[in-house]
């Protein structure tokens, strides 16, 4: 099939960007979206033009590196899918496709479609862990965890940190990402020891990274490639309110 691609091009974080249009013929419906871009890049190289920079790595939907807004939807039209697992079957001959980077103050553009998502790392560094060091931990079966709780924690833990939630949110809120991690760790007995401290630190880091706040439009859940539920945001709110009310700070 033939496609008209309109891709955001931006030299680096300090430059102005703009859309450029490219015509691409002979796209096979079996190709993944990224393979289609590979072909475009090979074509650009052969024409002595600079190929489009885009982030990608595992190409099997788990590393969370790929990140594009395709025709206005983060990771494209197929729900529950990362860009790398989106296949060209989802498009038809003659389509116009607009490809844009994640847009958020907290995710500055590095080049073309590549953004800097280290804000997520810093949120985790602020508290997204259980403070245990290597060794000296109890036997794995010492604390039974009810299966439904373990399953809920796993649902939240499947987050791949791609940032589609932030990209799709009109406020660039990171609540789904933070909610997923807070949920995973506060549900499990192992994470409960420091759950109050954790949620307060993570939310404060989230705010200082320049993410917006949640207005409950639930776009994040709709585009999340791992279909993480917004109930994790409710749990985040709950944990935060409880932790704030119960924190042992003095007035």
């Amino acid at each position: 099939m033939k496609l008209a691609l309109h891709i955001w091009r931006q030299k680096d974080s300090n430059s102005e960007g703009k859309f450029e249009s490219y015509q691409l013929d002979q796209v096979s419906p079996d190709m993944s979206f990224l393979e289609m871009l590979d072909i475009l890049n090979e074509k650009l190289i052969s024409e002595d033009k600079e190929p489009v920079a885009f982030d990608h790595d595992c190409r099997e939907g788990i590393c969370g590196t790929c990140s594009m807004v395709i025709n206005g939807v983060a990771h494209g039209p197929q729900g529950g899918t990362t860009t790398c697992q989106l296949h060209m079957q989802s498009f038809k001959d003659g389509d116009d496709i607009y490809i844009e980077p994640w847009r958020a103050t907290a995710f500055p553009i590095v080049k073309d479609l590549v953004t800097d998502r280290s804000a997520f790392d810093r949120v985790i560094q602020a508290g997204g862990y259980v403070s245990v060091s290597t060794g000296g931990v109890p036997d794995a079966n010492a604390t039974p965890v009810p299966k439904p709780i373990a399953d809920l924690a796993m649902d939240a833990a499947t987050c791949i940190g791609c940032g589609a939630c932030v990209a799709a949110c009109k406020n660039s809120s990171a609540m789904l990402f933070v909610g997923a991690k807070v949920s995973q760790l506060s549900l499990l007995p192992q994470g409960q020891v420091e759950k109050g401290r954790r949620v307060i630190k993570m939310v404060s880091q989230m705010d200082s990274e320049g993410f917006g706040n949640c207005t409950n439009t639930f776009e994040c859940e709709a585009v999340c490639p791992k279909e993480i539920s917004v109930s994790n945001i409710a749990r985040l709110n709950r944990e935060y309110i409880a932790a704030t009310l119960a924190s042992d700070e003095e007035s």
């Binding site: 259980v130 245990v132 290597t134 060794g135 931990v137 109890p138 794995a140 833990a157 192992q190």
Partner: peptide
């Protein structure tokens, strides 16, 4: 043991 203590579900 280590992974469970870290919160691996």
């Amino acid at each position: 043991d280590q992974a469970v203590a870290q919160g691996v579900p």
